[in-house]
Design a protein around this nucleic acid. Sequence first.
RNA 1: GGCCUCAUCGUCUAACGGUCAGGACACCGGGUUUUCAUCCCGGCAAUCGGAGUUCGAUUCUCCGUGAGGUCACCA
Length: 476
Amino acid sequence: MKPIRTRFAPSPTGFLHVGNVRAALFPWLVARHNNGAFVLRIEDTDRAREVEGAIDVMKETLNWMGMTWDEGPDVGGPYGPYLQTERTEIYKKWAQKLISKGLAYADPYTPEEVQAFRDQAKAEKRAFLYRDHRPTNPPAWDGSQPLRFKIPEIKAYHWHDEIMGDLSAGPEALDDFIIIKSDGLPTYNFAHVVDDYEMGITHVIRGLEYIASQPKYLALYEALEIPVPVLAHAPHIMAEDGKKKLGKRDGAKSILDYKAQGFLPEAMLNFLASLGWNDGTEQEIFSRQELIDKFSLDRVQRSGARFDEQRLLWMNGHYIRELSVDELFERSRDFWPEAAASASDEFKKQVLGLIQERLKFLAEIPELTAFFFSDLPVNMELINGNKQLKKFEHIELKTLLEQAKEQITASDFTATDLTERLNQLLETTSQKPGVLFSLIRIATTQAPASPGLADTLAVLGRETALRRIDATLAAL
RNA sequence: GGCCUCAUCGUCUAACGGUCAGGACACCGGGUUUUCAUCCCGGCAAUCGGAGUUCGAUUCUCCGUGAGGUCACCA
């Protein structure tokens, strides 16, 4: 059996956003699921739109996601080159075949003339078809005019799509289209058909924006006498508000922005895969390997899915909680606040252990951990605004805090000893935890929220805890 | 506008023509010795509308409606 080969073929016009990466994910999963090859091909035939450095950013994105490619620029492979601008001879060869069969001709019109045809059709409320203006005696193609494919037979097409099912289109979908531009470079419409064949691509998996031109491609496959690969068109990811396709213009963020915010690639992978795909069970969390094992195109949704960042957040939190503290520490290296610069790795790991369960993305680390690394100014609002503590006079709170200080001073500062002493204090002061613990917690952290009291004190250490208690005492 | 496609809770989705239409996120309530969070329990919430086929339609057909895609010397 022929090995399965899929490809992701971006044009280097900018960063990769969520929709782009999802477009790469499905072919990648199909390749991995079938032990096939995943090819990265750069479609750089529009030199005007090319963005410097875009290829590197795309590679970085794919690498971060763990979506590795078997062939492509740099890594090479048996079907290179993988940059379309380096394949012009190949396109010329195939174009020549079309010319010799009488199925391609030089376009004698100027762009303005073609536009005039278009405007005229519009004014008459007709659909514009270039083939209505097909020149009877086109000049020989010298490479300076665009080369058009001449649709051999105007007919309806019926074909199968692995995701969308059986599709069809009427003859109106067929029109002569440019295959080689006047700058000598091929158009997408031509180049991808040639390249997919030359590169042995068995499954063309892409976004549904190409469905409308599929009949043209089908006609081209016939004219070129090459087999039609398996076709699969995936619906788009929609912007969070509205129902438009998610795109850069709608403010879609680069995947690397999510990386910078401390989203985990495994969460992003899981999230993107389950946006528009499920395995038919109630499973929500899929590891990379499970995704590879279970993915199939026939379970991909036919309608577009809204990008729901809440769900991404939830999933990312889930994956963060699954990490060991050591792993979490490794991944958190770039996210510490400045004040943590002098803290030891060991201390940071202890802190991470305490905040892990409330972390949704790594960029939250500074705000969640600030009080572990530096003394925050005493904020009486925390006490005065606390619904338990506001009922007390400051003098009462001061007495309570002094009693707490005694116990804390005497503790060996293990979490268990601290817990024991805190519980004793509950009895000796006959106070509710809501009062006593809130008071100590606020005094020692000066934060509106923090991890459990005993654990927090143990990590903070005696010196820091007492220093902060004294500061609050002085303010009461 | 022409052509193509899609349509289940707010969102992502499940459901051989026969289910009390299930799960997850979000939201609301309760519990786990303070707060935030985790975790557990509970709640709210959907088959776009109309015909037809059928003993029976979320599921099949048609018509509406809504939405998306596409009509480039862009991909």
